[in-house]
Design a binder for these strands. Structure first.
Length: 604
DNA sequence: CTAGGGTTAG
């Protein structure tokens, strides 16, 4: 009689099962050490040329940001393996790791190798175009799409619409043409088209398309909602919000963000408190909203509350809140955030550290900024720019220039932001000659064509250095339209050097500005008025008169969140006039404290 | 026995 053997597979079988299971989930592996172990196993089992395993390995390495290893896997997969998936995986790896160019190169190599692209290839390639404004590239890919016959695979034209939408107004037109020509459209096609029109700022056309949609999902409503909030049409946005068939956390967050940007922090907070569920993004929006507007107590209180919920901040949350602190000079919250960064996994993250450097620099805490900068292992151009600009704007021009040389020594190529920092540094340190030299050689030396900011720095520099006439001359001759800051610095220079004989130049410049920027002079006059700087108020009124602007009795335009509102003296018509007067008063105090002479206008 | 792609808030 035979005993039944226990049903138990030999060990090697179960091991193999286990191994296979792991192979199937290879691309979901997030741990780099585990992944390397898996790779060893794959190679030992001679599976590195397997048409399914190899692409998975590439994806896995790509997800772990190990693009070098991904490439190695690709190369070792062998040419015998003429596999679209392999190429697709490599293209995606490049594109997802910010090497879009290499992705396109791979696409070309693939065709040279005689391998036909498929629908996935194009989706990946198009993703590589995002963030860049490269219409010619997108339309080139479009041509390939048509050539290979993938224009009816719904994913591909949808990706195309999205890619086109990031190429400015012309791109959006191309997107519209493609959209109208599509055989069938799904809800994503419609949503992408609405999003494209909104990106181009065409709110009414977007709404038209939105109304035409055969079916709308959450994304459709949220996209349209965001369009209205970005345009600061909060009442329309609220109407839409009320009428939405369903509201998710994105809808609520969009509204909170919209009210924050519109400056209505109370309404924002009310909605924030009413949200049925909050996530990291919602908290980030509300805290940044408070921080940006300088509401210290509210911002800190909410930040502490968020930490108490146990939410872990990610890179975007850190960067957003720190940027808001930088904007309003909110050092107290900035420091708190820094504490959190130190305890997080992002204390060596370049993006986060750059935000810290910028925050400390803008808050005037140069020592701390420098400490973060020095401790940063992987500095990029932004790190250098933030530090140089920070030093420069606080009168440490020599140190800024030193850093500039060091940065070049280390092989970084200065960009336009660097040069603003350098000119700013020269300006705030009285290095007039150096500033002039840098300005006039920046195109030759660094290939940077001067923009308004650069002109602004130089004009400020000239004016402060006593070359008032030259400053005016430059403002008049510059190929770009002078902005309010340039105006301010010219006025400052006039006052500083008692140059009243420049009326003609002033008029010339005003002609250049008018009539498009009618409100700006008044806005400026208002700022000086709040600062109690009556000399400049008188100056501006004189200028306004000199170009025959009709005198408006005591009315002035005050810029509030990019919108000009008209006020007359002691106007109480506006619902929030109390708040506004308070704010203007506060602004005046600030200006008095900060600038005996009108502040430099090349910062920011 | 297989994977992989497109749209919304910071």
């Amino acid at each position: 009689m035979q005993m039944p053997t226990p049903i138990r597979a030999p060990t090697w079988v179960s091991r193999r099962r286990h191994f296979e299971q792991k192979l199937w989930d290879l691309d979901k592996c997030k741990d780099i050490n585990q992944l390397k172990q898996m790779q060893t196993l794959v190679y030992k089992s001679h599976l590195q040329q397997d048409p399914f395993i190899a692409p998975k390995l590439i994806s896995a390495f790509s997800n772990c940001r190990q693009i070098g290893s991904a490439l190695k896997v690709f190369e070792q997969a062998g040419e015998s393996n003429s596999n679209v998936r392999l190429y697709n995986a490599l293209i995606r790896a490049y594109v997802c790791n910010f090497q879009a160019l290499k992705g396109f190169e791979t696409f070309l190599n693939m065709q040279c190798a005689g391998i036909f692209p498929d629908n996935f290839t194009f989706s990946f390639l198009l993703k590589g175009c995002s963030g860049k404004c490269c219409l010619s590239l997108v339309s080139m890919i479009h041509t390939h799409v048509v050539k290979w016959g993938f224009e009816d695979d719904i994913y591909v034209p949808n990706s195309l619409i999205d890619a086109y939408s990031k190429c400015g107004v012309v791109g959006v037109r191309a997107a519209g043409k493609l959209f109208r020509g599509m055989k069938e459209r799904d809800v994503v096609s419609w949503n992408s088209m609405v999003g494209a029109l909104l990106k181009a700022g065409d709110l009414s056309e977007a709404r038209k398309v939105f109304d035409e949609m055969p079916e709308r999902d959450r994304v459709s409503w949220n996209t349209m909602l965001d369009g209205y909030t970005k345009a600061e049409q909060m009442s329309v946005a609220f109407e839409l919000f009320k009428n939405m068939p369903q509201r998710d956390v994105v809808s609520w967050s969009t509204m909170v963000s919209g009210y924050c940007k519109a400056g209505d922090l109370e309404m924002a907070r009310m909605l924030f408190d009413k949200m049925p569920s909050k996530n990291l993004i919602s908290w980030t929006i509300m805290i940044s909203g408070y921080a940006e507007k300088g509401l210290v107590n509210e911002a800190i209180e909410l930040y502490v509350q968020m930490e108490e919920t146990g939410l872990r901040l990610d890179v975007a949350a850190f960067v957003s809140i720190l940027a808001a602190c930088a904007e309003s000079g909110m050092l107290s919250l900035g420091k708190r955030v820094h504490d959190t960064v130190e305890r997080s996994m992002y204390k060596c993250n370049t993006l986060v550290c750059n935000a810290l450097i910028d925050m400390y620099a803008k808050c005037g805490s140069l020592h701390k900024a420098y400490k973060v900068f020095n401790g940063l292992k992987k500095r990029d151009l932004v790190s250098w720019n933030a530090m140089i600009h920070g030093l420069g704007m606080h009168g440490r021009g020599k140190k800024a220039l030193e850093l500039f040389f060091k940065m070049k020594q280390e092989g970084f190529v200065p960009d336009k932001v660097t040069l603003v920092g350098i000119l700013c540094a020269c300006n705030h340190t009285g290095l007039v000659d150096e500033g002039i030299i840098y300005f006039y050689s920046m195109e030759k030396d660094y290939g940077v064509i001067p923009e308004v900011e650069h002109y602004g720095c130089l004009i400020d520099l000239l004016g402060r250095g006593g070359y008032v006439r030259e400053a005016f001359e430059l403002a008049r001759k510059m190929p770009l339209e002078p902005n309010v800051k340039i105006w301010g610095s010219l006025l400052g220079a006039c006052r500083m050097h008692k140059a009243v004989e420049l009326a003609d130049d002033v008029r010339d410049l005003l002609v250049k500005l008018e009539p498009k920027n009618a409100g700006k002079l008044s806005a400026l006059s208002n700022i000086y008025a709040s600062a109690g700087d009556w000399d400049n108020v008188a100056n501006i009124r004189l200028m306004m008169k000199s170009i025959g602007r009709p005198k408006q009795s005591g009315a002035s335009l005050l810029q509030l969140n990019d919108e000009y509102r008209e006020f007359t003296v002691m106007d109480k018509s506006h619902v929030k006039s109390d708040k506004i007067y308070q704010m203007v008063d506060g602004l005046g105090q600030h200006l008095k404290l900060l600038s005996p002479v009108p502040a430099s206008h090349c910062d920011e």
